Simulated scan of single mutants.
Amino acid sequence: MENAQLLLFIAATFLLAGFVKGVIGLGLPTIAVGILGVVMAPAQAAALLVVPNLITNGWQIATGPGLKAILARLWPMLAGIGAGTWAGVGLLEQQKDGSATLWLGIALVLYALVGLKAAKLRVPAAAEGWLGPLIGIATGIATAATGVFVLPAVPYLQALGLDKDELVQALGVSFIVSTLALSVGLLGTGALNPSVAGHSALALLPALAGMAAGTVIRNRISAGAFKLCFFAGLLALGSYLVLRAAG
């Protein structure tokens, strides 16, 4: 692929990924890593995502209702994410057969189907203290292996009973911690360097444009419609990962 075509391909990928993130609060790394994997290694795609992930999730956090309360409630999980990601440093570069992505996609599909059937998963408040760190560590290891931050953090957060805006803000907090932890690992393996960081900054523009458009839609839909979009989006993301890994 020629340079001009590659740039257009990357820009279109981030525009689409940003739009999905704007609507349902997640999907930027899932879509971008999946599509960019056609033209580059997973570790390269993950490195290209660093700046867009940091800024879009920062925006998502800033526009939420109550950051202090979210941090107070989620810090055990967030600490686990950091520990799990650093423990799994190097797994992304070792992934050759796509098996981690395949299982991630299957788990997403199953969770989305449960959600679309209106089954309500709930985490008792008393369990958050011990379950949060375990969820965080598992999410961190999955992040280190796939470059995608969704499992099992997203089902856990959704099961906390947060409202639409609280959930989107909590997702942003979780994803920005995952991005920072993964960035440290990518720096250590050499996948993230000043040149890649510059290219990552350029990818921010289409990601922000897409996210702005998606946010407008999210602000105009009801809580019920958001829930439907949320699980349908997870189903689409999971199906895409399964098809890509299997192909």
Results as ranks from 00 to 15, higher is better:
Pro42Arg: 11
Gln44Tyr: 02
Ala45Cys: 08
Leu48Met: 14
Leu48Ala: 10
Leu49Met: 15
Leu49Gly: 14
Val50Pro: 01
Val50Leu: 10
Val51Thr: 12
Val51Asn: 06
Val51Gly: 07
Val51Pro: 05
Asn53Asp: 13
Asn53Leu: 15
Leu54Asp: 05
Ile55Ala: 15
Ile55Arg: 06
Asn57Arg: 04
Gly58Trp: 00
Gly58Ile: 02
Trp59Val: 10
Ile61Pro: 01
Thr63Gly: 02
Gly64Pro: 04
Gly64Arg: 00
Gly64Val: 01
Leu67Arg: 12
Lys68Asp: 08
Ala69Met: 07
Ala69Arg: 15
Ala72Pro: 00
Leu74Gln: 09
Pro76Val: 08
Met77Pro: 00
Met77Phe: 02
Gly80Leu: 11
Gly80Met: 05
Gly80Lys: 13
Ala83Phe: 15
Gly84Cys: 10
Thr85Tyr: 12
Thr85Ser: 14
Trp86Cys: 06
Trp86Ser: 06
Trp86Pro: 00
Gly88Leu: 13
Gly88Val: 11
Val89Asn: 15
Val89Thr: 15
Leu91Cys: 06
Leu91Pro: 04
Leu92Arg: 10
Leu92Asn: 13
Gln94Cys: 00
Gln94Gly: 06
Gln94Asn: 10
Lys96Phe: 04
Ala100Cys: 00
Ala100Phe: 13
Thr101His: 14
Thr101Phe: 15
Thr101Ser: 14
Thr101Met: 14
Leu102Ala: 13
Leu102Cys: 08
Trp103Met: 13
Leu104Thr: 01
Leu104Ala: 10
Ala107Thr: 02
Leu108Ala: 14
Leu108Glu: 12
Val109Gln: 07
Val109Lys: 11
Val109Asp: 09
Leu110Ile: 15
Tyr111Ser: 08
Tyr111Thr: 09
Ala112Gly: 01
Ala112Tyr: 01
Val114Phe: 03
Gly115Asn: 03
Gly115Val: 04
Lys117Gln: 12
Ala118Leu: 07
Ala119Gly: 01
Ala119Pro: 05
Ala119Val: 12
Leu121Met: 11
Ala125Ser: 09
Ala127Pro: 03
Glu128Ser: 11
Gly129Met: 09
Trp130Thr: 01
Leu131Asn: 11
Gly132Ala: 15
Leu134Trp: 08
Ile135Cys: 11
Gly136Val: 05
Thr139Phe: 11
Thr139Trp: 04
Thr139Ser: 15
Thr139Arg: 09
Ala142Arg: 07
Ala142Asn: 15
Thr143Gly: 12
Thr146Ile: 05
Val148Trp: 08
Phe149Leu: 10
Leu151Tyr: 03
Ala153Gly: 04
Ala153Tyr: 07
Ala153Arg: 07
Val154Ser: 00
Val154Met: 09
Leu157Tyr: 06
